[in-house]
Design a protein around this nucleic acid. Structure first.
Length: 1126
DNA sequence: TAAGAAGGCGTTTTT
DNA sequence: CGCCTTCTTA
């Protein structure tokens, strides 16, 4: 697209207009007409602005593709919704959509060049509407174009890089490219020219061998890799417009086969493809059929569905049918039982550890079995509805090829040459697909990969396919590329050492470094540094970056490769403080400017009025919180539309202005992307204020790119294939649906990472990325920080859903995945590689060196290089000011202190600002709310003297349910019956007569706490008091360590010192009662005291008005996440 | 000194 | 929820 823009600008200049000259659309089109000697394409059914765009679009095709426009009418007018379908995510290599997109960009750039748009907006301070008017274009088009022109980095003067001078192939590459017949597996280590060889292979096939280009099938994993390969093939002139190789992704190829031959499996002609969220929604819609038990969670039924869907997808990648999956799980259960029996029969004293292990094995088996059942239900649903998921694109294609010999032979004849890229990353399904296509002797198969770079095993990639190449392809042979063109000799030696250590049996590979050692006195090629703390490490990296820049390595040539996004985020932040521009967007939805705009959207769609607090705090409106809070309250209470309230003449001017903006947006369209564009470029001063807030130009860039990403996300958002059941009375509202979609994505744990647009490629800033993301890339300078134990390799977390053993037969695994990742990271460096670690971290007091460093030892010893010591950093600790106990102790309820403990910021929103926040996404919180209300009611009834009659329970349940229950919820009945049974259990716990009126109270250092236990019961005969806590979930191991129980004990002791005390947990769902014993030792008593002290700490925080946000998992479900931190 | 309990922390990504 | 670390206890 960058190139397309460049072409458009150049064309505009040849037409006689400069880049920043204000020229009307009519004049531009007139010039186009005379330049091409063709009439202005005209369609009188269009509006004036649209007509210009369409005409320009036709000229664009004429110049770009030397052809006529074949785009649909929709393509022509609706420039924004270019790629709204999920199917467009699957790359089938067809040129149509790409050409259409190029023409759109070209046309827009021709009519309103980026430089002109920037000048008019920033210098002349014009709005999109006035620009549209003066150019004779539609405002929507102008806004769409401004989105790119203002938010993306302007293109560099010169093209970023010319393609590498076409080096002729070296002997190894030549031999591989010109193998007369396969099957061949080419081992291509880092920087050995894998892609060049692949291209060379195509040239060899189409050249000397005279193979028609369309007989070649090249399969990759990512669309990007496919795109690059297509580009390079075009560059070297392989193929013609009528005969070109089929280059695309495995999934894209599968999609094409399913479109052609899907009828053999009874698939519908129009394929409906599900993404992960669709799949989760589908399962959620049929939750009762899933019969979840161990994987059930009443309070958040969807909590495990994400993991289950992931597991199903894994199974499909392994070509494992639901039946087979169930068998594996059954075997797992048998094994678990056998293990349990073995433990049971073991002589000697029983160890808790063994018993736990047995229990654990059983639980895992039970979970797996439930997942297996979900799989079978899911698959039936897919077939019933005619849906496919991503994994089906491969597995069902395999199914066709295996069951329809005619289809198979058709395809084998069409593609006698099959090229498979990244062979170490193929999963079983892809490997089978390749095997089938390659045919009997598989002479046309040419695969390339590097098993040491197999870093995607967690998603099913299996280097076992590399190991088993000869088994799968008898008569197959291997070749290895041995010259590294990328890195300086010391770096090549270093990662060769690692590769040698990784290999258990095989001879270590020795790559020849082509580049030798280009001595650079200012910096060693390889360096290993250790800092006492993380700030020291950041200082060290920052100063190395500066030194290297001074030595001629621009910031854009330097990259920091981290193991996790968490590390990347932290390091990027530390470098930003040290004035190093870094290119890292992080989680898109956590970025303040993105949250700002999401709040705006939620105001437009009327989904969350508390967003008002955030929006009105912008400089544009500058309304004080004092003025806004009453408005929020009124809107909540009066059920009057927000805009109407804002437009009341008594409102402060800021609120009225916002009211005007919102009402205009609401009148205009309900498309999220269009609304955002109109707001940003037409109505508001948002972008100018955003700039004013930030002094560093680079950070401004990041802000704008993040906003661009958000708009892109909104553009590609479309109605879901599978929707959650909605209330019939809800009006369609695309903005609301978009916001809900984002929340649901968050809820299933999908983080939307802000990926950088290609336009960012030329920016001079240090790239911060994960080692995974760096695969296939190279940088002159590479930093690999945080090489501590537990950091790299990362101590990861697994999903709750176990994988049945035997799903993947990964026999003969070569090296550990983390070692591969380390290897990938090291081999990205061209000239300088800086490895570093910190001896402490914010979480661990001491961090040992990563075991991965041991792999480097031989080389470091041989070179006589020892660790460089970096000094400690400045520790920027802000001392917490102590607030002494106040004269009059304030009183809090225990629940508000607990709220503060969970997240002080949430406490602030709820208790200080009195906001209500978003309603919960699913029904479980309403259900929970009902149960709590009912239990409180029950306890209050009891306080009056006696247990209510049983019939009253049902009456009360109906009453509370009608008002607060999850009515119309998909699983309302399930919730309702659990609520009824819990209430019943609580009711049966009546025990004794004689209830305490009022609650308990406890005095801490800085406050008094009012405690209202779930249930209390006084037995006058023995003068004993039983205090019970109701738990609605399943019993857990550390329930009795809950700080609330400690508080119960303290409060009961203080309120009734003379009574005999008994603390209990009552599990309502199970009908169990567990007694909580008195702390037997001093140590335990101290632990309990510490728990109580947490209430004290919370009270101190509230008094000191400290309300920091506790960022973590809870944010995903927090009702205030959009406005936080306010 | 080792077993055990309690607390703290927290992955990678494409289609 | 599963791991590692840190602390207590026998």
């Amino acid at each position: 697209m960058i190139e397309t823009r460049r072409l458009a600008l150049a064309k505009r200049e040849t037409l006689g207009f400069s880049q920043t000259e204000l020229v009307t659309a009519a004049e531009v089109l007139e010039a186009c007409s005379s330049a091409t000697k063709s009439p202005r394409f005209q369609d009188s059914s269009l509006l004036p602005g649209e007509e210009s765009f369409q005409a320009a679009h036709h000229f664009a095709h004429f110049w770009l593709h030397h052809g006529k426009c074949t785009c649909s009418a929709d393509d022509l007018v609706r420039f924004g919704a270019a790629e709204s379908s999920l199917l467009s995510k699957v790359d089938t290599g067809s040129a149509g959509p790409k050409h259409a997109a190029e023409a759109r960009v070209f046309a827009a750039e021709l009519l309103l060049p980026g430089p002109l748009a920037r000048k008019l907006f920033w210098e002349d301070r014009l709005t999109s509407e006035s620009i549209a008017e003066s150019l004779g274009l539609s405002a929507a088009l102008v806004e769409w174009q401004m989105k790119d022109a203002l938010l993306l980095p302007p293109p560099a003067e010169k093209p970023p890089k010319e393609n590498k001078p076409g080096r002729s192939l070296d002997p190894f590459q030549q031999k591989a490219a010109s193998t007369p017949r396969g099957p061949l597996l080419l081992g291509a280590g880092p920087g050995t020219g894998k892609t060049s060889t692949l291209i060379g292979r195509c040239q060899f096939l189409t050249g000397p061998l005279g193979v028609p280009a369309e007989k070649i099938l090249a399969l990759t994993f990512s669309r990007q890799a496919a795109q690059e390969m297509r580009q390079r093939l075009a560059d070297v002139g392989v193929g013609t417009p009528s005969s070109r190789p089929w280059v695309g992704t495995f999934h894209g190829f599968g999609l094409e086969i399913l479109r052609r031959f899907g009828d053999r499996l009874g698939l519908p002609t129009e394929i409906k493809l599900l993404d992960t969220l669709d799949a989760v929604t589908l399962l959620e819609n049929h939750l009762p059929r899933l019969n979840l038990d161990v994987l059930d969670n009443l309070f958040n039924p969807a909590v495990h569905l994400g993991g289950i869907v992931k597991q199903i997808s894994r199974a499909k990648d392994e070509l494992c049918s639901p039946a087979r999956y169930a068998e594996l799980c059954a075997a797992m259960s048998v094994e678990a039982e056998r293990f349990a029996a073995e433990v049971e029969a073991k002589p000697g004293k029983k160890l808790k550890k063994d018993a736990d292990a047995a229990l654990h094995a059983r639980e895992q088996a039970a979970k797996a079995s439930e997942a297996a059942h979900c799989y079978s239900v899911y698959q039936k649903l897919l077939e019933q509805e005619g849906f496919l998921d991503f994994a089906d694109l491969i597995s069902r294609t395999v199914e066709i090829l295996e069951s329809c010999p005619d289809v198979l032979s058709t395809l084998q004849a069409e593609y006698p040459h099959v090229l498979a890229d990244e062979y170490q990353d193929v999963n079983r399904a892809c490997a089978r697909l390749v095997r089938l296509l390659a045919g009997g002797k598989a002479e046309g198969l040419w695969a390339v990969g590097d098993h040491r770079q197999s870093i995607y095993r967690f998603r099913g990639a299996s280097p076992a396919n590399v190991a088993a190449f000869e088994r799968d392809y008898p008569g197959g042979h291997r070749l290895e590329l041995e010259v590294n063109y990328r890195s300086q000799a010391p770096i090549v030696e270093l990662f060769s050492t690692v590769a040698g250590e990784m290999e258990q049996e095989a001879v270590p590979p020795a790559w020849h470094a082509k580049r030798g050692t280009e001595a650079d006195s200012s910096f060693p090629a390889v360096m290993l540094a250790v800092a006492p703390d993380e700030d020291g490490q950041a200082d060290g990296i920052a100063s190395a970056i500066k030194t290297l820049r001074a030595a001629g390595k621009p910031l854009g040539d330097q990259a920091i490769l981290c193991r996790t996004h968490g590390q990347a985020k932290a390091l990027a932040a530390k470098l930003a403080v040290r004035d190093i521009p870094t290119l890292y967007l992080g989680a898109l939805l956590e970025r303040p400017e993105v949250k700002d705009l999401l709040c705006l959207l939620s105001l437009i769609s009327g989904t969350d009025d508390s967003s008002l607090l955030r929006v009105t705090s912008w400089p544009e409106y500058a309304v004080s919180q004092r003025d806004v809070l009453p408005v929020v309250e009124r809107v909540t209470l009066e059920a009057k539309p927000l805009v109407d309230v804002l437009l009341e003449t008594t409102m402060p001017p800021g609120l009225q202005l916002l009211g005007e903006h919102l009402s205009a947006l609401q009148a205009q369209s309900s498309d999220p992307a269009a609304s955002l564009c109109h707001y940003l470029f037409g109505q508001s001063q948002f972008l100018r204020h955003l700039d004013a807030l930030e002094t560093k130009p680079f950070v401004r860039r990041l802000h704008r790119m993040a906003i661009h990403q958000l708009i892109g996300l909104a553009e590609t958002f479309d109605q879901r294939v599978v929707t959650t059941k909605k209330l019939a009375l809800e009006k369609p509202n695309k903005i609301r649906d978009f916001l809900t979609h984002l929340r649901r994505m968050q809820a299933i744990g999908e983080t939307l990472r802000g990926s950088l647009p290609p336009e960012a490629g030329t920016l001079d800033a240090v790239r911060v990325l994960t080692a995974h993301a760096a695969k296939g890339l190279e940088y002159p300078v590479v930093f690999v920080p945080n090489l501590g134990a537990g950091q790299f390799p990362s101590r990861g977390r697994h999903d709750g859903i176990p994988e049945p053993s035997g799903l993947a037969d990964i026999a003969g695994l070569d090296a550990d995945e983390e070692e591969c990742l380390f290897f990938v990271a090291l081999s990205r460096a061209r000239d300088v590689l800086v490895l570093s670690r910190s001896e402490t971290s914010s979480t661990d007091r001491s961090v040992k060196p990563s075991p991965l460093l041991a792999l480097l030892q031989p080389w470091f010893i041989q070179q006589g290089i020892s660790e460089t010591l970096w000094p400690a950093g400045r520790t920027a600790e802000t001392p917490v000011e102590e607030v002494g106990p106040p004269d009059i102790l304030p009183t809090y309820t225990s629940s508000e202190l607990e709220l503060y403990g969970r997240c002080p910021r949430q406490y602030y929103y709820e208790r200080v600002l009195n906001l209500t926040g978003l309603p919960p996404l699913s029904g479980y919180l309403k259900f929970h709310n009902c149960v709590r209300r009912l239990l409180t009611w029950l306890e209050e009834e009891r306080m009056t003297g006696k247990n209510p009659a049983q019939e009253r329970l049902e009456v009360k349940l109906e009453e509370v349910w009608a008002e607060h229950g999850p009515s119309h919820h998909l699983h309302e009945m399930k919730y309702k019956s659990s609520a009824a049974s819990m209430l019943r259990t609580a009711w049966e716990q009546q025990g004794h007569a004689g209830y305490e009126t009022g609650g308990l109270q406890v005095t801490l250092t800085s406050c008094r706490v009012k405690v209202r236990p779930d249930h209390m019961c006084h037995d006058a005969a023995t003068d004993s008091l039983t205090v019970s806590r109701y738990l609605t979930g399943k019993p857990g191991d550390d329930d009795k360590n809950d700080k609330r129980l400690a508080l119960y004990r303290r409060a009961a002791r203080e309120t009734f010192p003379e009574r005999l005390l008994r603390i209990e947990i009552c599990y309502l769902a199970e009908g169990l009662v567990a007694k909580v014993d008195e702390p037997p030792t001093e140590y335990k008593a101290k632990l309990e005291a510490d728990r109580v002290a947490k209430y004290d700490t919370a009270a101190q925080g509230i008094q000191a008005e400290r309300f920091p946000a506790r960022v973590g998992d809870i944010c995903q479900t927090c009702a205030y996440s959009l406005i936080c931190p306010l």
